[in-house]
Simulated assay, not measured.
Amino acid sequence: MKVATMTWLIAIIVGGIAGWLAGQFMKVNTGVLINVVLGVVGSLLANFLLGIFGIAITGGWLAYLISGFIGASLLIFISKKIKN
């Protein structure tokens, strides 16, 4: 398997876990696909926002899991505020 394929596979798995954890923490019930999207997009968002403050998330899957959790939680929070 190519390295790029493995990287995307790991990003999807870690993103799904991060999205699921954020959903449990924020008390929302989402499906597997939404969990993956929340985790991956949330990780990108968190890395961008933390980069503005000079904090760089580097390292293995645990760092991506933490940043995905932070970003997904932020996305859920924003969507809850928009709905209300």
Rank of each mutant, 00 (worst) to 15 (best):
11 A>C: 09
3 V>L: 15
84 N>S: 15
10 I>N: 12
1 M>W: 09
56 A>I: 08
63 A>P: 06
13 I>H: 03
78 I>N: 02
48 F>E: 07
52 I>S: 06
82 I>Y: 15
4 A>G: 12
79 S>L: 10
37 V>L: 15
1 M>V: 12
65 L>W: 04
47 N>L: 01
72 A>C: 09
42 G>V: 11
2 K>C: 02
32 V>M: 10
8 W>P: 02
41 V>G: 00
79 S>K: 13
37 V>K: 07
72 A>M: 11
45 L>N: 02
75 L>M: 14
28 V>I: 09
67 S>T: 08
74 L>D: 06
13 I>W: 01
79 S>T: 13
7 T>W: 12
32 V>F: 09
60 G>M: 05
49 L>D: 00
26 M>R: 13
75 L>K: 04
29 N>L: 10
55 I>P: 01
45 L>Q: 01
73 S>V: 06
36 V>M: 13
24 Q>T: 10
78 I>T: 11
2 K>P: 11
26 M>W: 02
39 G>R: 05
27 K>W: 12
23 G>V: 08
54 G>M: 06
67 S>C: 04
78 I>W: 06
23 G>S: 14
69 F>V: 02
19 G>I: 08
33 L>P: 01
42 G>I: 07
20 W>K: 15
57 I>V: 11
74 L>N: 02
39 G>L: 05
2 K>D: 12
66 I>K: 03
51 G>L: 04
40 V>H: 09
22 A>K: 06
2 K>R: 11
75 L>I: 14
19 G>M: 03
40 V>R: 09
62 L>I: 13
34 I>S: 00
67 S>Q: 07
68 G>S: 11
73 S>H: 05
57 I>P: 03
39 G>S: 04
14 V>M: 10
60 G>T: 08
4 A>P: 07
77 F>V: 04
11 A>I: 07
12 I>W: 00
15 G>Q: 05
12 I>K: 01
15 G>H: 03
24 Q>M: 15
11 A>N: 15
34 I>H: 00
65 L>H: 02
30 T>W: 05
64 Y>F: 03
39 G>T: 04
67 S>W: 00
63 A>W: 02
65 L>M: 04
38 L>F: 14
7 T>A: 13
47 N>V: 01
60 G>H: 05
22 A>Y: 10
42 G>Y: 12
18 A>E: 00
36 V>E: 00
39 G>P: 01
69 F>C: 07
57 I>E: 07
19 G>A: 05
36 V>I: 15
75 L>G: 11
20 W>S: 11
15 G>I: 00
22 A>G: 02
52 I>F: 12
77 F>N: 12
45 L>M: 10
70 I>K: 03
61 W>L: 13
10 I>S: 15
61 W>R: 02
30 T>R: 13
18 A>G: 05
60 G>F: 07
37 V>P: 03
40 V>E: 08
76 I>E: 08
53 F>R: 00
69 F>S: 05
47 N>G: 08
9 L>E: 04
82 I>H: 12
17 I>V: 15
55 I>E: 02
21 L>R: 02
41 V>A: 12
28 V>Q: 09
6 M>R: 09
55 I>T: 08
29 N>F: 10
3 V>D: 14
14 V>D: 01
36 V>K: 03
13 I>C: 08
53 F>G: 14
13 I>Y: 03
16 G>P: 08
